[in-house]
């Protein structure tokens, strides 16, 4: 029987290695040894994902490795989720998507993984998301924030329309808006009325946390 420390380290390593089979084994071991599922997630696989996020930012890991790790992380999350005793206290819920007309979602997916690795509740609308869908989903899941990305100059201005939708429906001060994507700058973010801008995935997590703290 492996110790708790070994299991947590095993989970983290399996995620880092993007090894789905090993990750499954460690997740099962965690369940069998009655390790708190929340701890297994946060101190096990999410730690692994954080390592990968840092490596990607530093140019030490690439998209294939990130995708494999994400695959392993999601597999273990699916296994551990039913064993969560109480609902984990998420720092917030964010509705994310790539803005209408744009389908470049790799960046958005990486941000999503990093947020989930920080226990943020992410509702992913995918890519080419119509502007009204963001607000509808925010209402439906009672989200605290919207995260939008765009890689195309032809689409990025639709972010302003989403913000207008929030303002029109009286959701703006309550629901925070963060944006990102290659053509997006801090100035652009401000000008469309976004509350936060992040140049990369690691920063996005910090920005989200800051917005949720209301600072």
């Amino acid at each position: 029987m492996a110790t708790k420390e070994e299991i947590l380290a095993g989970l983290a390593k399996a995620v880092i290695d993007g090894d789905v089979d090993t990750a499954k084994k460690w997740a099962q071991a965690a369940i069998d040894s009655n390790i708190d599922a929340f701890e297994a997630l946060t101190k096990g696989c999410q730690q692994g994902m954080k390592v990968m996020g840092d490596r990607y930012s530093a140019g030490e890991a690439y998209i294939p490795e990130i995708m494999l790790s994400a695959d392993a992380m999601y597999t273990t999350m699916d296994m551990l989720r039913p064993h969560l005793k109480a609902k984990a206290v998420a720092p917030g819920t964010i509705v994310m998507g790539v803005i209408e007309g744009d389908v470049h979602d790799i960046g958005k997916n990486i941000v999503k993984m990093m947020l989930e690795a920080s226990s943020v509740n992410v509702v992913d609308l995918g890519r080419d998301v119509p502007i009204a869908a963001f607000v509808d989903k925010v209402k439906e899941v009672n989200a605290n924030a919207i995260g939008m990305s765009s890689l195309m100059t032809t689409c990025m201005f639709k972010m302003k329309d989403v913000v207008d939708m929030l303002v029109e429906q009286g959701l703006k001060p309550k629901v925070k808006v963060m944006v990102g994507g290659a053509p997006i700058s801090e100035e652009f973010a401000k000008s469309v009325g976004a509350d936060g801008y992040a140049p990369d995935a690691a920063e996005a997590v910090k920005v989200f946390e800051k917005l949720m703290r209301g600072a």
Binding site: G18, I63, P64, M67, D71, D105, I106, N109
Partner: peptide, 10 residues
């Protein structure tokens, strides 16, 4: 899709 293809090539 780049994401799927990146997993496939591994």
């Amino acid at each position: 899709g780049l994401d799927k293809m990146s997993i496939d090539l591994k």
